[in-house]
């Protein structure tokens, strides 16, 4: 592997990390297609690299946000039961999935989320601070309105199911799975976008840690590629964190949907080529 490829992976990691921290994703959804379709790495090597960057990005983003009350630790931990089981099952079953099947899953997942994001652009879910958030809800300072707001968690079984699927997809494709959880938590479970994104950002690291060791043990991790990607993602996510607070949520969602639609077309083309 040449210095040019190392530099390219660091650069791609930086872009993915920046977009990832802006959108509350691990960034894997942008990086894995680049490594797989762009650099021609095997799907499983790309996925293993993606999982490493997800862990790094998750820890960096959550550490940067700690103290802002956006992260819902209790809800996150409860949903992590489902995501880690999904991730663990994925790590064992991915060996039996063909590249065709993986491309198809990637295309379907990204297409579904892209549509979901566009149809739920303005759901904010924030309640007055006087409302009791219940055992699982939370309160935080809302930058958009400048007030203290509260939210309640609804339809927990739906959130758990979505988390299981997100965990499975994360462990199979090497993406964080935030693209699946964040819209569901936001659209149906009553969690405001920023709280859902921050909680998901914390969760995806734990989720990825349930499948990464299996990839590592099987030799699917290419250490220099993974190192370059992790370093790039850390640089990018720090940059994204610094400017993310000022970007309007609505345009973040439109940007996210557009990128996912492009990734989806790419993988459907791969699956049916």
């Amino acid at each position: 592997m040449s210095i040019a490829i190392v530099a390219g992976v660091i650069g791609a990691g930086a872009v993915a990390g920046c977009l990832g921290s802006l959108l509350g994703l691990g960034g894997g959804v942008f990086l894995v297609p680049f490594l797989n379709a762009g650099l021609g790495l095997d799907f499983r090597v790309a996925a293993a690299t993606g999982l490493m960057t997800v862990i790094a990005n998750s820890s960096a983003v959550s550490a940067g946000r700690a103290g802002r009350n956006l992260i819902n630790l209790r809800l996150g931990m409860l949903l992590e039961i489902a995501t880690t089981i999904g991730g663990l099952i994925a790590a064992f079953t991915v060996a039996y999935l063909s590249n065709h099947a993986l491309a198809l899953i990637f295309g379907l997942v990204t297409a579904a989320i892209s549509v979901l994001m566009l149809t739920r652009l303005d759901r904010r879910n924030v309640l007055d601070a006087s409302v009791s958030p219940g055992r699982l809800g939370g309160r935080f300072h809302d930058d958009d309105t400048g007030r203290e707001v509260a939210y309640q968690v609804k339809r927990l079984p739906l959130g758990m199911s979505a988390s299981f699927v997100a965990g499975y997809v994360s462990g199979t494709l090497g993406i964080g799975g935030g693209i699946l959880k964040v819209p569901v938590l936001n659209a149906w479970c009553g969690v405001p976008m920023r709280a859902a994104a921050a909680t998901s950002a914390l969760m995806i690291g734990v989720t990825a840690a349930a499948s990464a060791p299996q990839y590592f043990a099987r030799g699917d991790v290419n250490p220099p590629v993974a190192a370059a990607a992790v370093i790039g993602v850390l640089i990018g996510s720090n940059f994204g964190l610094r400017f993310g607070g000022r970007a309007p949520v609505k345009w973040l969602k439109v940007l996210m949907a557009a990128v996912l639609a492009a990734v989806s077309v790419l993988y459907f083309t791969k699956a049916f080529a």
């Binding site: 790094a56 820890s59 960096a60 959550s62 550490a63 946000r65 700690a66 690291g205 993974a226 370093i231």
Partner: peptide, 22 residues
């Protein structure tokens, strides 16, 4: 939340230093 944040940061920085030198 703050303690967890510091712990995550320490882990990631240790890993990042090893990975960069490596």
């Amino acid at each position: 939340e703050r303690q967890v944040g510091r712990l995550l940061q320490a882990g990631v920085w240790t890993a990042a230093v090893c990975l960069t030198i490596g």
